[in-house]
């Protein structure tokens, strides 16, 4: 009986997290359009609902009813599997993110503010993030289009180049908290803003943010889908729901990397000052995530796109050495302090 209740509780948790994440994804597209248009002296979506608030819903419906086209000469199985291969890893990472502090107690049932807390949480997220690159690469290859192929190749190169410094940047917080679990990592940063790892690890934070933008294919690193030269990159040939899967995955990834950044560097659900702890932890968590998401959108409105070779040079010649030196310094200081 206990087992059954546990399984039901976990399923409810999964459904709730999925629901919340997908709603956020939908409204992130809306927020992006609104923030961009505000920065660019225009209105953005205004027609569907008050201030265009129902626009994401309309977009979703439109995509759902669009014709699903598989181009001639495409490899059907891989072409159909690729969008799923991109979306699932993006969503699966949310399983280990601790959204809040307190568990909800209903009788004997305890509902935790995270789906699970595994002791290799960070590794788990990184591992699944790499699988997403396969979806992009295979989608680009299976489309039987040169633009998609070039987009897919670029993406593979880009993700491999930036995954290394991304992982190395996370080594800093791991060393400081002496844990790979996201929950322990958050708890290690309690007691005020000066205890957040961003203070002790500013270099790692900057490296992480830059690599996270590259991982999610956002400007200025949106090479794989550089629309000015590659039309739409690896999803040029996709339409309808399959296209929307790629689209959802991109925004879900944005939220995921922001969540990881918040957990690893910005204290997770911890309040910045002990005096502010009366505000629920989940609110703090969301505020920090929204701030990072706003930063991404802001960046998109500001900078042009890098060229592919510049991006690779930047990744290997600057990001990787900086991340390595940071890991080395952190380890030495940590050893000396002990």
């Amino acid at each position: 009986m206990d087992l059954v209740i546990q399984v039901v509780v976990v399923i409810i948790q999964i459904a709730a997290v999925l629901g919340v994440v997908l709603t956020h994804v939908a409204y992130l597209t809306y927020a992006e359009r609104k923030i961009l248009s505000d920065m660019q002296d225009r209105l953005g979506p205004m027609e569907v609902g008050p201030h265009g608030l129902l626009q994401p819903l309309a977009d979703g419906l439109k995509l759902f009813f669009k014709e699903d086209i598989i181009p001639a000469g495409a490899n059907k199985i891989i072409f159909s599997a690729a969008p799923i291969l991109v979306l699932v890893p993006a969503l699966i990472g949310f399983a280990v993110v601790p959204f809040g502090r307190d568990s909800l107690q209903i009788g004997p049932i305890e509902i935790t503010p995270y789906i699970t807390d595994i002791n290799i949480g960070v590794l788990y997220v990184l591992a699944f993030a790499s699988i997403g690159a396969y979806g992009i690469l295979l989608g680009g290859w299976a489309s039987n289009s040169k633009y998609a192929l070039l987009g897919g190749l670029r993406s593979a190169a880009q993700v491999i180049s930036y995954e290394l410094p991304l992982g190395l940047a996370l080594v800093g917080p791991i060393l400081l908290s002496e844990s790979l679990s996201m929950k322990t990592m958050t708890e290690a940063q309690g007691g005020g803003i000066w205890n957040w790892f961003v203070v002790a690890q500013p270099i790692a934070f900057v490296v992480y943010m830059i690599c996270a933008i590259a991982e999610t294919n956002r400007l200025p690193f949106d090479m794989p889908e550089a629309e000015s030269e590659l039309v739409a990159g690896f999803f040029t040939e996709y339409s309808g729901m399959r296209f929307s899967f790629f689209f959802l995955a991109e925004y879900a990834n944005m939220i995921l990397v922001s969540c990881i950044a918040v957990v690893a560097f910005l204290g997770g659900w911890q309040a910045p000052l002990p005096a502010l702890e009366f505000i629920p932890p989940i609110v703090w968590f969301l505020v920090k995530v929204y701030f990072l998401l706003f930063f991404y959108i802001w960046l998109r409105a500001t900078v042009p796109r890098l060229r592919f070779d510049q991006l690779m040079a930047f990744g290997w010649k600057i990001m990787l050495p900086v991340a390595l030196v940071n890991v080395l310094l952190t380890s030495i200081i940590k050893y000396l302090l002990n």
Partner: peptide, 16 residues
């Protein structure tokens, strides 16, 4: 030109 290089905001400013 700015839009081609990825700086979309300049495009809206110049068209204003």
């Amino acid at each position: 030109q700015a839009l081609d290089i990825g700086a979309m905001t300049v495009f809206f400013y110049t068209f204003r």
